[in-house]
Amino acid sequence: MAMPDIRLYALVDADNLRPDALPQLARQAAENGATLIQYRDKSASTRQMVDRARAIRAALAGTQVPLLINDRLDVALAAGADGIHIGREDLSPADARRIAGPDMIIGLTVKNQSDADLAAVADIDYACIGGVFATISKQNPDIPVGIDGFKTLATLIRAAQPGLPIGAIAGIDEATAPTIIAAGADGVAVISAIFRTEDCGQATARLRSVIDTALDERQRS
């Protein structure tokens, strides 16, 4: 399958946003430049998650923007989502691929060298490094890796998987996106930068424009 487009990876997070608003927010983001949507929910029951995931998937119908579920392969399969995003404490990439099959998108969080070593050999479709900067959207006991840390981890992964899309997450907005793109990120994952704004659609469109410009500038340099 083709590698996913991770330029603007929008996370609709039920712990940071109104759960009943997630489908509408996902649709607005998809219509205005988000290239990937992730549903993240650390509080809901499994049944609630499946219902919410199905509602988000229905809202995305016709946009061609894939829906991924954070952590929960069971929810992704039940809701007919396009993939999952997993971390170090979740199902292993190998087990996820064995259960999900070859066509489901699998993304992996990378926080340190051990995670990068796994990403270098795992059967995944993209990696997302972070947190790069501090963020208010998630309680994170790990110290932000910063730009230099991002470069180091991305280099480790690309040495083994040259074509693997690598994104960046945490504390990224219109001001910081060009810096992390210039450092080698293929895209950024965000919550606050688009969903904690007065107009989600306009914020998404502006950030997508910033990302595309930064990617073009990096390609020309």
Rank of each mutant, 00 (worst) to 15 (best):
M3F: 11
M3Y: 13
L11P: 02
D13E: 08
A14S: 12
D15I: 03
L17I: 06
R18H: 13
P19E: 07
L22N: 06
P23E: 05
P23F: 07
Q24K: 15
Q24G: 11
R27Y: 06
Q28W: 14
A29W: 09
A29I: 04
A30I: 01
E31K: 13
E31W: 07
E31N: 12
T35M: 02
L36Y: 07
R40V: 10
D41S: 13
T46Q: 11
R47G: 01
Q48H: 10
Q48K: 13
V50Q: 10
D51E: 15
A53C: 12
A53I: 09
A53L: 09
R54F: 05
A55P: 02
I56F: 05
I56M: 04
R57C: 04
R57P: 02
A58G: 12
A59D: 06
A59C: 06
A59Y: 04
G62M: 08
T63V: 04
T63W: 07
Q64L: 03
V65A: 02
P66I: 00
L68R: 00
L68V: 15
D71H: 08
R72L: 07
A76C: 04
A78L: 14
A78F: 11
A78S: 13
G83R: 05
I86C: 00
G87S: 06
E89V: 12
E89T: 13
D90T: 05
D90C: 04
D90W: 10
P93H: 05
A94R: 14
D95K: 12
R98T: 13
G101D: 10
D103A: 14
M104D: 01
M104W: 05
G107L: 01
V110S: 04
K111Y: 09
K111I: 05
K111G: 14
S114A: 14
L118Y: 06
A119I: 04
A119T: 01
A119N: 09
A122N: 08
D125K: 00
D125I: 01
I129S: 03
G130H: 09
G131T: 15
V132D: 12
I136F: 09
S137T: 15
Q139T: 15
N140E: 15
P141R: 03
I143A: 14
V145I: 15
V145L: 11
G146Q: 12
G146T: 10
I147R: 13
D148R: 13
D148V: 10
F150D: 00
T152H: 13
L153C: 03
L153K: 01
T155K: 15
L156V: 14
L156A: 14
R158T: 08
A159T: 11
Q161Y: 02
Q161A: 08
A170R: 08
I172K: 08
I172P: 07
I172C: 09
I172Y: 07
E174A: 15
E174L: 08
T176R: 15
T176S: 15
P178Q: 07
P178D: 06
I180H: 10
I181T: 02
I181S: 00
A183E: 03
A183T: 01
A185D: 01
A185N: 02
D186R: 00
G187N: 06
V188M: 07
V188N: 02
A189K: 02
I191T: 03
R196C: 11
E198Q: 13
D199K: 09
D199L: 12
C200M: 10
C200H: 14
A205T: 11
R208M: 11
R208A: 15
V210L: 04
I211L: 05
D212L: 14
D212Q: 12
T213S: 13
L215M: 09
D216R: 14
